[in-house]
């Protein structure tokens, strides 16, 4: 019985080694076929995250500047006005859903009142997410779109979600980052 058991385990080991070799060969073949598109997709995902990060950082910088950098319709507001509820944002049913319409902004360039020098500001848009107006022209291959969503958080705080997305033959891919912006944050 003991010997039989030993032989049994040896057979299992041999089967295991053969299976291993076969699986590894299949793996090499699979890698060769899929490597390129796999790598492209991963790279796009990382780029999308970096563009989201860049969006959040720009918002933080904008808030630090005491300028009228929030454009809603024909009026411009400052960040303190946003926190003081002089600007009222519509309630958002699902802030993490890119495809629904909430208080969604896009970056643009604004002029200072007294001179022609330009600075970044954000302007509200109501276009559907498939609209080309969201595109980031300077981004790689010009396939990425970006929108900034501002939603109400607790008192003296706003949630800033930056969505970056692209669409390919496999559908919609998105990479959002949410950052809680505090009123007193320097």
């Amino acid at each position: 019985m003991q010997n039989g058991r030993k032989i049994g385990l040896a057979v299992v080991e041999i089967i295991y080694i053969f299976t291993t070799i076969i699986i590894i060969i299949i793996n090499f073949l699979l890698l060769a076929v899929t490597s390129e598109r796999n790598s492209h997709f991963s790279k796009y995902l990382v780029t999308a995250r970096l563009l989201s990060q860049e969006g959040i950082k720009t918002i933080i910088d904008l808030k630090k500047q005491d300028k009228t950098s929030i454009i809603i319709g024909s009026r411009s507001y400052t960040w303190p006005q946003l926190f003081d509820k002089i600007v009222t944002l519509p309630e958002c049913a699902n802030p993490s859903d890119l495809t629904i319409s909430c208080a969604d902004f896009t970056f643009k360039e604004c002029n200072t009142a007294n001179s022609n020098s330009k600075y970044s500001c954000i302007e509200i848009h109501t276009n559907p997410y498939t609209d080309v107006s969201w595109r980031i022209p300077e981004a790689e291959n010009k396939i990425f779109s970006r929108k900034i969503r501002i939603t109400n958080a607790e008192n003296n705080a706003k949630n800033i979600t930056v969505f970056v997305w692209w669409i390919d033959s496999d559908g919609l891919h998105t990479s959002p980052i949410t950052y809680k912006l505090m009123k007193g944050q320097k």
Binding site: F28, A32, E36, N38, S39, S42, K43, L45, V46
Partner: peptide, 21 residues
């Protein structure tokens, strides 16, 4: 040999792109 052979592939996943950065 098997590890180095796979290592030489051009393909990279999400984590590897972060490590490259």
């Amino acid at each position: 040999a098997l590890r180095f052979f796979i290592a030489s592939t051009n393909s990279s996943n999400f984590d590897m792109h972060i490590f490259i950065l």
